[in-house]
């Protein structure tokens, strides 16, 4: 694929991901409501919310916070654009961490106890899911590996020709597991939650309001679409069938996450690290060993 096509993909992501992410968030709320026996808001409700937030008076507990949230949005958009432009997967993971760090700083800097506890939980959960993501990148490298080494580049992985799903089944299942944490869904919605059962109010986002809060919502739309892109990457075979299968599985995965979100109560915070690391070790490292043995 030429560089120009890849650049076009990145531009399409930047332009359309918020639309798709917004609809996804609307569907999320609709399905959740139906699972709980409610009617639910219209699908475009997240858009209305953000529009209203943008119109609100600008208030903040300190100015630095707005700066940090803007950085968060910026780096999340950059990360997603890099992913759809087919760049190096490790670099993408690291840039995502950079964005996350800005969100955490935004929560810390307000000095609010709710936000700070949320921030600490956010980095704690990051510690639980990060090994799996790095292991996934390494597995792709081994999967695409030939005589002269593999590749971390998403364009090489997507254009490799074979689907990664079968040789990397353990990694895929592990990734689905940590996706719950990454999407901040119950039982791992420690740092902030969409539901009213949170002990630290809205956690990380407690002190965000108006435009700042809107920026965070939009970043989440971008982030969710990129994460679903990562799910779809397992099914790419260099042809259009891979794209279709990938998209379908990604949507199914999201619906699965909604079901888990509604079907499980919050777990104790200790569970996140223990289960995240055990899954990474067993499914992730186990799969790496399998890939090395096959090679």
């Amino acid at each position: 694929m030429s560089n120009w096509t890849l650049l076009l993909f990145a531009v399409i992501f930047v332009a359309l991901a918020p639309v798709a992410g917004c609809i996804l968030a609307g569907i999320d709320r609709k399905i959740s409501a139906r699972m709980q026996g409610r009617q639910g808001p219209p699908v475009m409700q997240p858009l209305y919310d953000v529009r209203k937030l943008l119109a609100k008076e600008r208030r903040t507990s300190n100015r630095v916070q707005d700066f940090y949230v803007a950085c968060y949005l910026f780096w999340i958009v950059v990360t997603g654009a890099m992913f759809f432009a087919g760049m190096d997967l490790l670099l993408i993971v690291f840039t995502l961490t950079l964005g996350e760090t800005f969100l955490v700083l935004a929560a810390y800097c307000s000095g609010s106890p709710f936000a700070q506890v949320g921030a600490q939980r956010e980095i704690y959960v990051a510690m639980a899911y990060e090994p799996m993501i790095l292991i996934m990148a390494v597995a792709y490298y081994l999967f695409t590996g030939g005589e002269d080494g593999g590749s971390f580049a998403v364009r090489d992985i997507a254009g490799f020709g074979d689907m990664a799903i079968l040789p990397m089944l353990g990694i895929f299942l592990g990734f689905l597991f940590i996706l719950t944490m990454k999407l901040r869904k119950s039982p791992f919605d420690l740092s902030m939650s969409h539901h009213a059962h949170q002990d630290i109010v809205r956690g990380v986002a407690t002190e965000f309001s108006g435009r700042t809060y809107a920026m965070m919502e939009v970043s989440h739309w971008y982030e969710n679409i990129m994460l679903l892109g990562m799910v779809a990457l397992f099914f790419q075979n260099g042809e259009w069938t891979g794209v279709v299968i990938g998209a379908v599985v990604a949507v199914l995965a999201y619906i699965l996450e909604i079901w888990i979100d509604n079907g499980f109560a919050r777990m104790k915070w200790q569970t996140a690290l223990k289960s995240g690391w055990i899954v990474s070790l067993v499914l992730g490292m186990g799969n790496i060993i399998a890939l090395l043995v096959i090679a």
Binding site: V64, C109, I123, M127
Partner: peptide, 18 residues
Amino acid sequence: SAVTGFYWTKWLGKLACV
């Protein structure tokens, strides 16, 4: 690396507090 991120970010957060 995951652990490294945890201990640096929590220190960074303390400094950033306004």
